[in-house]
Design a protein around this nucleic acid. Structure first.
Lengths: 229, 229
DNA sequence: CAATTGGATTATGAATTCATTATTCGTGTC
DNA sequence: GACACGAATAATGAATTCATAATCCAATTG
């Protein structure tokens, strides 16, 4: 094997600052360190990350395109709000995309992938039985990610990610009632069954409905939080 | 009425160069003046629009986030390709979103809007009878836009637009066979009926299927074009 | 004392300059 | 003559500088 056959190594050249910044800024917003409604002066970011304004501005533009921040002419960037109205706007879109994830995953997943997801599903059941919420959420995320990968559609993945990021800030905050949790587990099982049977349309419909139910259980909690303080 | 009650006028301050540039660049790509695979050196754009590289770079970053161009480290921007594989990736996403447009439009449209769209549908029929393709496409677009507006969901509108733009470059190129055209008209009528009955789920399913059929009629034509030259 | 106005300050928008990475082209060697 | 090496050129990445709009604050006026 000659050196000419070796794939170019990306690791040698570190990613562009703008890309790096976009990721880190996104994380700051996602983890709530930058809160909805908060203004983000460029100076703050240049100091925090030790870079000039140029890459900062490029990163902010991208985040604006993703809907995580709002840009106002000559007044800079503000972290997007997360009102109930916003959620009711975002979740149906996420549900529609989730439905497609299911349809495509049923068509394109390898048996290996279906197996892996079954294992995750079992693990999630054990977390549920223990009442271990952090672990449940963690595995839940993994299942979604695995499904998305199995769908084999980068465009879908991209848009799903962008919408999911906007929604997930709420998902982490909101509390899960025992009733809704049990319901969700049943839905997950039905999803897994359709998946293993490769019933594309059915799986799509189930996953779409699952996400819609999630909104319905979340909205009141968010509304209470906004109203209460 | 005092001056304090007057809404601030946006027209006085012209939009930021970066925004303006983003729109115009997008148009150039959409209309095919910048072709898929073509490199877009920054210098070219600064000369064409008479601005510095700073706003150009910001605009390109946004277009990359939208998927219209690809960015390669230290090698600039390239107009995204439009292969059959790409189309088969983009269309299902568009179909899923289109389905949601239907569901929501059925729920939220005013009777006025339904009426307007019925009129457009009738007009489209006349264009079909005349065999007037440009007019047919034009009205078709208007119907889609009206449906999107009736859905009352800005997030959906945003993602729909982004995905539709990627797809539409193909849509204009491809030729419509008489058979497919007649079929499409029937689908449109079914869509209109479900719309007027406000059958949300059914309308969603019909619009999703309509888009999926469109892909199936387009893909061979695109494949032939790619293969032939 | 409240409200408005004008200047000072600060932030963003855009252009320019500097640094680093690709690309091109010519030379030399096998 | 083909390939490899290296200097010259041109592109992009990032920082700095300049211009302009928004905000803040004090002074003035009713």
């Amino acid at each position: 094997m000659s050196l000419a056959d070796v794939e170019p190594v990306e690791t040698l050249s570190r990613p562009a600052l703008a890309v790096e910044l976009t990721d880190r800024l996104r994380t700051l917003i996602m983890e709530g360190e930058l809160k909805p409604g908060e203004k983000i002066p460029e100076r703050l970011l240049t100091e925090r990350f030790g870079v000039s304004r140029t890459p900062v501005r490029e990163a902010v533009k991208v985040l604006a395109a993703e809907g995580l921040v709002m840009l106002v002419q000559n007044r800079g960037a503000v972290v997007s709000e997360l009102t109930v109205a916003e959620l009711e706007e975002v979740f149906p879109v996420l549900a529609a995309l989730e439905g497609l994830v299911g349809e495509l995953a049923a068509l394109h997943a390898t048996t290996q992938e279906i197996d892996d997801i079954r294992r995750l599903n079992n693990e999630m059941h054990r977390a549920f039985d223990r009442g271990d919420r952090p672990n449940y959420f963690e595995i839940n995320q993994q299942i979604h990610a695995a499904m998305l990968a199995a769908a084999r559609n980068p465009t879908l993945a991209q848009h799903h990610q962008i919408v999911a990021r906007r929604a997930s800030r709420a998902r982490y905050q909101a509390n899960l009632t025992p009733e809704r949790w049990a319901e969700a587990m049943e839905e997950h099982d039905a999803i897994q069954r359709a998946f293993e049977a490769r019933e594309s349309k059915k799986l799509g419909a189930l996953m779409k409905a699952h996400m819609e139910h999630k909104l319905r259980s979340l909205a009141p909690a968010i509304a209470a939080k906004s109203g209460g303080g």
